[in-house]
Amino acid sequence: MKRTVPLIITFVVGTVLILSVFIPPMENLGENFTLFFDIIAVFAFFLGGGNLVRVHFQKISRKSDDFQFSFVTLIGFFVMLSAGLFKIGNPGDIASSVTADGSLFNTIYQSVFVPLSSTMYALLAFFVASASYRAFRAKNREATWLLIAAFIILLGSTPFGTMLTSWVPESWSIFHIPNLAVWLMSSPNLAGQRAIIIGIGLGVVSISLRLILGLERTYLGDDSA
């Protein structure tokens, strides 16, 4: 019963949604089901938030390894939650925007959250360099082609790319390195990406059918498939 009901729901909803694409009077069903999901997901946030608080309280009470970090997490969680919920320091009334200039929420957002997020994102610069160093080696013919392509694209985004091929006449402008870089990205690269996307599309069809037909049940916690 615990597994049968979800399987029936999956089958019925999946089939109805596929049909709704082709049957105009059923058109809005897709939107409605997305809305239902959003509503459920919002309530599920309490599960997540609750779990976060519980796990970190536990860490502190048991004095587990690195439990000091849990203090930071919990303080951050409760301060931000209260600032947003009670609109602390908001210049307008309760109806005004939570991110209005001057509100505590916006101040923390701008001075703590934004720099922290950007810092994490900025790590990419370091990691791209170390990954390129390891990965772009001319180990075989295919890897050599990739290496050459990567070099052209990197050169294309520097002024040296323009300088190096500035002597090439305008009628052969495709061989200007910046143009070559754009061509590499928009033609061979895109062709490859599209092939992958077609494969992904078919993969999605296949896994969706397995889900709708009930062949795939692991996501329901059923390992019998």
């Binding site: 992904i200 078919l202 993969g203 296949s206 896994i207 795939e216």
Partner: peptide
């Protein structure tokens, strides 16, 4: 696992 291979994995 490139694209579709991810979806093929469970099967």
């Amino acid at each position: 696992l490139i694209g579709e291979e991810l979806f093929a994995a469970s099967a």
